[in-house]
Amino acid sequence: MRHIISVMLENEAGALSRVAGLFSARGFNIESLTVAATNDPTLSRMTIVSVGDDNIIEQIVKQLEKLIDVVKVIDLTATEHVERELLLVKIDVNPNTQADIDRQIDQFSGKIIDVSEDTYLIEVAGQSKKINEFLDSLDASKILEVSRTGVTGVCQKREG
């Protein structure tokens, strides 16, 4: 099952590689990983999407908690939470396809953030599922470049 694990860790050099190294050393899989500082400059928040059965996810959480730099680990998928991902995609457009593409962008609440003579640069934010669907709705042969941020998320209740 897909899990979103949120990790609060000391904002120190090397902390990211400790987490990444743990996943490769123990053979855990990472679908995506995002990391940035939080409102507390001494803390970073890392959001990891991983796939595994309950035992594996339990091990991942415990092994993360064991890292000295890690302050807190939350399996977001175990609580009510919000997840978002940002997509930037560059595609070929021409007068024949433009109207269709504009409609699709609208439908997915995307934004055209740059236009050239024959390309669009589009931004779409939302759950990964939505982003997958948006990409699927495009003509694959017209996609020039895709960049996704990976998932970030928070739990909905006041105390995370």
Partner: peptide, 11 residues
């Protein structure tokens, strides 16, 4: 003492 040893190999 180490919670990660629990259930790692054997339930």
């Amino acid at each position: 003492i180490d919670p990660s040893t629990i259930g790692k190999v054997v339930g």
